[in-house]
């Protein structure tokens, strides 16, 4: 049985994301931002095993991220650092004020064996890049 968690997704800054902000091709940026923080109880409920990632799905898209526990998060809220992985599931509507809703998207989370895409793969389908981005 696949367990699906319904949660509110928020994105935001972290120290690791910030420190690698201008080194987006680096492994540090990948490690810092392609990750989804989940409350301890939700994490345990999802039954994520050591080699598993999570698939986060919203009405705007889906993305695979590594998962980690965060004791600061309340149940039902997940956090993804600002960056292209988070934005894969953010909607483009600005509500008439120029700014998308980067925090507060309804999401579904489930464990997955799928690998996390690296930054090149994330953009591989755009501009006819075919994965040859860098």
């Amino acid at each position: 049985m696949v367990i699906i968690l319904k949660a509110i997704m928020i994105s935001g800054r972290t120290l690791g994301q910030g420190a690698s902000l201008e080194a987006k091709m680096s492994p540090e940026f990948f490690n810092a931002t392609s990750t989804c923080a989940i409350s301890e109880s939700d994490y345990n409920a999802l039954g994520i095993s050591g080699d598993e990632n999570v698939l986060v799905r919203t009405e705007f898209g889906e993305v695979v991220l590594s998962a980690r526990k965060d004791d600061g998060l309340p149940p039902g809220v997940i956090f993804i650092p600002m960056g292209p992985w988070a934005n894969a599931v953010v909607g483009q509507n600005t509500g008439g004020c120029g700014c998308p809703l980067f925090k507060g998207t309804e999401a579904e989370v489930e464990p997955t064996k799928t690998r996390v895409k690296d930054v090149c793969e994330l953009f591989a389908d755009l501009k006819g890049l075919g994965g040859e981005g860098s």
């Binding site: 080194a23 987006k24 091709m25 705007f60 934005n87």
Partner: peptide, 26 residues
């Protein structure tokens, strides 16, 4: 490309883009 929602970035990919920046990024 990193900081806009994916759908918005898809629109960027359809038009000519000029980048002025010290650092490579998406």
């Amino acid at each position: 490309a990193s900081n806009f929602p994916r759908k918005t970035v898809e629109a960027m990919a359809e038009i000519p883009v000029i980048q002025v920046d010290p650092f490579p990024n998406p």
